[in-house]
């Protein structure tokens, strides 16, 4: 069993779980027939059943070894790269959490400074210019379009 087989088998299981959960939720919907022989439940039922079948097929194919072997550079998945992806993800999440309390200008500038100084090392001046200019001009542009972004700690 290689990594791909395990991944595909798990995907199959996940799909079956998702399909079941969706069917369960669809079953809880009230069956209202307002001049409509099928009501709001039928279409979701069909999707749910198709998902279940799909999950079974994906899982079975993985176990029988029909998964495609010509996948991209999966083997070179270094942990540092995954760590970096996770880091960017959490950094973005933090940015969204402070988006309204701190305001767009401050939060976006800090967010961009962090990313630029990590991923574009050795060019501090360019990083500073971009990180301050982009949020500022975005704010002005959106104000021109009549969209107010959260001002947060600044008066305007």
């Amino acid at each position: 069993m290689n990594v791909k087989t395990v991944k595909d088998a798990l995907l199959g299981v996940g799909t079956v779980v998702l399909g079941s959960a969706y069917l369960f939720a669809a079953n809880l919907l009230p069956a209202l027939h307002t001049g409509d022989p099928v009501g709001p439940k039928t279409f979701p039922y069909l999707i749910g059943i198709a998902t279940l079948v799909c999950g079974v097929v994906i899982g079975t194919r993985a176990i029988l070894g029909h998964s495609h072997d010509d996948w991209s550079d999966e083997e070179s998945d270094a942990p540092t790269r995954m760590l970096a992806v996770g880091g960017v993800y959490i950094w973005t999440l933090l940015y969204f959490l402070v988006f309204e309390p701190l305001g767009f200008l401050l939060s976006c500038t800090m967010f961009m400074l962090g990313l630029c100084f990590f991923f574009n090392r050795g060019h501090p001046i360019a990083n500073l210019i971009v990180s301050f200019a982009i949020p500022f001009f975005t704010y002005v542009l959106f104000a021109q379009l009549g969209i107010t972004l959260p001002s947060g700690v600044f008066p305007y």
């Binding site: 967010f111 990313l115 990590f118 991923f119 360019a126």
Partner: peptide, 11 residues
């Protein structure tokens, strides 16, 4: 620089 580009797209 790809680093700046990433920050820009996310913003």
């Amino acid at each position: 620089p790809p680093g700046i580009l990433m920050a820009l797209i996310l913003a």
